[in-house]
């Protein structure tokens, strides 16, 4: 188990290193000089040069890469070119929205998908199964930002249960904060829950067809006991994979939903930073998100080993 974990941790470090290189040098080749963006078209050449020196843009790329990586390891993400504030603070501020939103949506998705998937698998071919599958088919097909707009129309504009957008802030209390994240979280969770339900159902159906389920039934277990005692845990590997993918997706992929609801999240931060060529912000946020994805993948790998004894011994 330890060895398995150590191996995974090694490959995690390598992935991070490669990803950081890719991000840094990809943004190097991006057209557009941030200093020129900041000063506008009419900037004097020597002012421009001075600003470039101040921002450290005149130094060689490998040196700047090392500075960037070294800084990040100490929690120093650099200074935003446009806002002149530490990037770390900006990110922290935005994470207060993005992280709870992602967790909220993931929680909703899991809470819906587990019972729905199990229910459908248990009654394969029944009206319940057909109904669940039909709803998930719609859930996967619906563009979530359109669903969000419709929810705004119904629940914010017509019924006035929620506000149409913006974030109340946690200072106003946890309830108010959660309330302003509810519609976005539902919009994000709908397609995710649909996918997860389908995965749960098909993974369960697959394991229910395994020989060891028949063995369990021959011992006298009822269909339900066999499902809970043997099939469920065996079906967890694909389900865990999807949950891991969804968390990474939700953290970064809320960008469009943030736009619908005017939420100050990470996605919008990147969006604005790109438009302003505030590359240091873009770099840092993307690196942070990639870091999150890789760490989540690592956690999922460890969860596999916890579920499946066959993985503990090897690799």
């Amino acid at each position: 188990m330890l060895q398995y974990g150590a191996r995974r941790a090694m490959s995690l470090m390598v992935s991070l290193l490669v990803a950081s290189l890719v991000i840094f040098f990809a943004l190097e080749i991006v057209p557009g000089d941030p200093a020129a963006y900041m000063l506008g078209i009419n900037a004097e050449p020597d002012t421009l040069a001075a600003l470039r020196a101040e921002l450290g843009l005149d130094r060689a790329a490998p040196l700047r890469y090392l500075d960037w990586i070294g800084g990040m390891m100490q929690g120093d993400f650099g200074i935003s070119h446009t806002y002149r504030t530490p990037v770390a603070d900006m990110i922290a501020e935005r994470l207060k929205v993005s992280l709870p939103l992602a967790l909220y949506a993931l929680g909703l998705s899991t809470l819906i998908a587990f019972p729905a998937g199990i229910w459908a698998a248990q009654r394969r071919g029944s009206a319940v199964d057909l109904g669940v599958m039909g709803v998930t088919q719609l859930g996967v097909a619906i563009p979530n930002f359109w669903f969000a707009m419709l929810m705004v129309l119904v629940f914010a504009i017509n019924l006035r249960w929620f506000s149409a957008g913006g974030f109340a802030g946690w200072e106003a209390g946890i309830g108010a904060g959660l309330k302003s994240l509810t519609l976005p979280a539902v919009a994000l969770a709908l397609p995710q829950a649909s996918i997860l339900t389908r995965v749960m159902r098909s993974a369960l159906l697959e394991t229910l067809g395994e020989d060891y389920i028949r063995t369990a039934r021959a011992k006298g277990l009822t269909r339900g006991q066999a499902l809970r005692g043997h099939a469920l845990r065996n079906a967890m590997i694909p389900v865990l994979t999807i949950i891991g993918l969804q968390f990474s997706f939700l953290l970064a992929g809320a960008i469009i939903i943030e736009n619908v609801f005017f939420l100050p999240g990470l996605g919008r931060l990147v969006f604005q930073a790109i438009s302003a060529r505030d590359l240091i912000v873009v770099e840092s946020v993307v690196m942070l998100l990639v870091f999150a994805v890789i760490v989540v993948n690592f956690a999922v790998d460890m969860a596999y080993a916890w579920v499946d004894p066959r993985l503990r011994g090897q690799r």
Partner: peptide, 13 residues
């Protein structure tokens, strides 16, 4: 590596 990058965000970028 490509999978590790948030797809929508990169598309936006």
């Amino acid at each position: 590596l490509i999978f590790a990058f948030p797809s929508l965000l990169i598309a936006v970028m």
